[in-house]
Design a protein around this nucleic acid. Structure first.
Length: 427
RNA sequence: GGAGAGUUGUCCGAGUGGUUUAAGGAGCACGCCUGGAAAGUGUGUUUACGGCAAAACUGUAACGAGAGUUCGAAUCUCUCACUCUCCGCCA
């Protein structure tokens, strides 16, 4: 959520930002105008309400004293005078509430303002390839198989079994496949720990306040599984519970940087996606992911962002997977983000890039809704910057590992991972 | 799931309708005192939203959350959440 003050003091920045989100000038003008007018209404009502309440408070105190000294008639008279004021507070409160609701409705749907370095663009095609690995992409024989066929061959995961137990998109990993999953999780967590992240094991279900805190509600409510009876959401990413650790928290400057990581299973309804692009592990409803999260001093947040990108890059290199890093354009970034880099890995048999990580700086957008702030050296309360990234999401990493490393003898496990799998070849 | 008791500031804790402007204590911060420290002593010690160009200052709100009664609510009523104790169930 953007802060109101931005619309009062930094309209030029709002204009540029929303333009990057492909808003028309008219739409931008309308939004700004509506916000400013509504805010004015709200403030006027607030001021008047406060004055009226102040009068009532004074009068009530006077009545108290009259009652005490036994002047009952005078007290009764004073009471009747208050009635008019009370009517007034009701109207004013209504006005204020209405204005607040309108403001919140507008602010909740307004996307974050992209950072100045974010390129203009409308679709994924407009994303900039920012960095790519320098070696040639692996070339496979013509009889190379996609990962779902390799899986059948070696018994790595079973989607049909998942259908029987649960439904489509719930893979069942078995044997060495299950070990591979566990090895990757352990590897990612160890690397995160080396990079100074504190490990969290969060709840996999969250309440509405938490879902709202990170912006899943109202933007992506349809993406989450919901347990109606208990009013709890299954998390689509560990970002949700972990970021909410700092909801309604005021940090001190010396607490920075706060670096947390968490492994969790993630649940996504992925409503409306079908077709060849979702075969195998390309898109599933339940998957494993290690997430890294940082709460940063505003002046340091882009350093932290770089640090997180380098961390993910290192993971890709250790796994010996081809990757490229995209700087997302304004039109393709998620609404909450101010700047996002996506990591994609090359899936050699499918011959396409698969997204495996998304590293974002949300600046103050999440912090505003979360009310996550810090006290600066002057004792002033300021909003923190929040960042997060996948480090990493497993399914597509597994897809790429299987496809790229297939040999007649089996799937070759990258050196860095053997320590965890305890086997060098999966066959 | 059933029954009972609770939830007050950074912490402990008083407070059952009207100087509560939330007592008192502890902690913390800054002074004073001291050769230095302890003890003593003084002051300060939440946040949100308004007013003011801004600060100083000032208004309003918040005693688990929300609604209600009342001229006036930490205090009374209702709903919900959470904590503790006992019973039941249980990896």
């Amino acid at each position: 959520m953007l802060q109101l003050a931005v619309f009062r003091d930094e309209q030029e920045r709002v204009r540029i930002g929303l333009k990057k989100r492909n808003w028309t000038d008219d739409a931008i003008d309308e939004a700004i105008k509506k916000i400013l007018i509504t805010d004015e209404t709200r403030r006027t009502a607030q001021t008047e309400l406060d004055t009226t309440l102040s009068e009532i408070n004074k009068a009530s105190k006077a009545i108290g004293e009259l009652m005490k000294s036994g002047k009952k008639t005078e007290a009764e008279n004073a009471k009747s005078e208050i009635a008019a004021w009370k009517e007034k507070t009701k109207t004013l409160e209504e006005t204020r509430k209405q204005a607040e609701t309108i403001l919140e409705d507008i602010l909740l749907v307004l996307p974050n303002l992209p950072n100045e370095r974010v390129p203009y663009g409308k679709t994924p095609d407009d994303n900039e390839v920012w960095q790519a690995w320098t070696q040639p992409l692996p070339e496979l024989d013509t009889d190379a198989q996609p990962h779902w066929e390799l899986s059948n061959k070696y018994g790595i995961f079973d989607l049909e079994l998942g259908v029987k137990i649960t439904g489509a998109g719930f893979p069942v990993f078995r044997g060495k496949g299950a070990k591979l999953v566990r090895a990757l999780i352990q590897f990612f967590l160890d690397e995160a720990q080396k990079a100074g992240y504190e490990e969290i094991i969060p709840p996999l279900m969250v309440n509405e306040a938490s879902a709202r805190g990170t912006g899943q509600i109202p933007d992506k409510e349809g993406q989450m599984y919901y347990a109606e009876k208990d009013e709890l959401y299954l998390i689509p990413t560990a970002e949700v519970p972990v970021t909410n650790i700092m909801r309604d928290v005021i940090l001190n400057e010396k607490d920075f940087p706060v670096k947390l990581c968490a492994y969790s299973q993630c649940f996504r309804r992925e409503a409306g996606s079908y077709g060849a692009h979702v075969r195998g592990l390309n898109r599933v409803h339940q998957f494993d992911k290690v997430e890294i999260v940082q709460f940063s001093h505003p002046e340091k947040s882009y350093d932290a962002h770089t640090q997180m990108i380098n961390h993910v890059k290192k993971l890709m290199q250790k796994l010996e997977l081809p990757y490229r890093i995209l700087k997302l354009c304004g039109g393709d970034m998620s609404g909450a983000s101010a700047m996002t880099y996506d990591f994609e890995t090359w899936s050699a048999a499918q011959k396409r890039w698969l997204e495996v990580s998304s590293v974002s700086n949300f600046e103050t957008y999440q912090a505003t809704r979360l009310k996550c702030r810090y006290k600066d050296v002057n004792g002033k309360i300021q909003l923190v910057h929040t960042l997060n990234g996948s480090a990493l999401a497993l399914p597509r990493i597994i897809a790429a590992l299987l496809e790229n490393n297939q040999t007649p003898e089996g799937i070759v496990i990258p050196k860095a991972l053997v320590k965890y799998t305890k086997f060098k070849i999966l066959n």
